[in-house]
């Protein structure tokens, strides 16, 4: 079964249609990249999977989004519980103004976990997974805002992984970072694939080519082409895709 599936998804901001009849399926334990020029709807589409668009007034969505075969836009679903299973990493690192430890422990705390040993173990495990443990293990009580941008982003990844979601959505996770930090995040994405299903929105086509198994190209709210990354970058079927990846527009 496919991990994530979208069926005929349309999204409107007021009168303006931002997504047009999008259908695609994503296999478990793969990395899928969403590419396309600014304003093409790729971030908006990403945010359908954890219902982050709910936070914006005036958004209307039709169609179905299924996760493990369950429709998440059915009214009965508990959105907060759902979001706990779908992690999200944002464009700009957004650690809470709390200590490093409390940032990673946040997800457990809001679940009501109080056991200190559980919290300690989870914080260490998550920071290790995010390849940040060695850099911060002596400074867990320091403010997360004292870290560098790249470290903050890895902290946000650790914070997301602490609640063991099955999917991680990444919205241009490296666009605000320097090349070295970007390389670290990409390496991390590659390693995390064995445990998670990852969807990454990126502006950077080399990045899409490096980290993803499959790539979806969006343009003006439509899914133009969706295929294995190799095919998209070496032998795209559509003219628009070809033009975009060769840098003729976008």
């Amino acid at each position: 079964m496919q991990k994530l599936e979208a069926r005929n998804v349309n999204l409107f901001y007021g009168e303006k249609q931002a997504l047009k009849d999008i259908s695609l399926g994503i296999d478990p334990n793969t990395v899928t990249a969403f590419i396309g020029p600014s304003g093409c709807g790729k971030s908006t589409f990403l945010r359908c999977f954890n219902r982050m668009n709910d936070l914006i007034d005036n958004v209307r969505i039709t169609g179905d989004i299924l996760i493990d075969g369950r429709n998440i836009y059915k009214s009965k679903i508990n959105v907060d519980e759902h979001r706990k299973k779908i992690g999200m990493v944002f464009q700009k690192p957004n650690p809470f103004p709390k200590t490093i430890y409390e940032n990673v422990a946040f997800g457990l705390r809001i679940k009501g976990v109080k056991d200190k040993s559980v919290l300690d173990e989870t914080v260490e495990r998550s920071l290790r997974q995010a390849a940040l443990w060695d850099e911060v293990k002596d400074d867990l009580k320091k403010s997360a805002l004292s870290l560098s941008g790249g470290q903050q982003q890895r902290l946000c990844i650790a914070r997301t992984m602490a609640v063991e979601p099955s999917v991680i959505l990444m919205d241009e996770p490296a666009s605000a970072l320097d090349p070295l930090s970007t390389a670290k995040i990409e390496e991390l994405i590659y390693e995390l694939k064995s445990k998670y299903t990852i969807v990454i929105v990126t502006h950077n086509m080399q990045q899409a080519a490096r980290v993803s198994d499959k790539t979806a190209f969006f343009y003006l709210g439509e899914l133009i082409e969706y295929n294995t990354t190799t095919t998209i970058f070496t032998n795209p079927k559509k003219e628009q895709t070809h033009n975009y990846i060769t840098g003729r527009f976008g």
Partner: peptide
């Protein structure tokens, strides 16, 4: 408070009450 913190809180699966009192008010 930066919008990104609210998004982070909701993205982690916080309820509105948790977002308000565990993230927004402290921030």
């Amino acid at each position: 408070v930066p919008k990104s913190l609210r998004e982070a809180a909701y993205g982690m699966g916080s309820t509105r009450l948790q977002t308000a009192f565990k993230v927004m008010v402290p921030a």
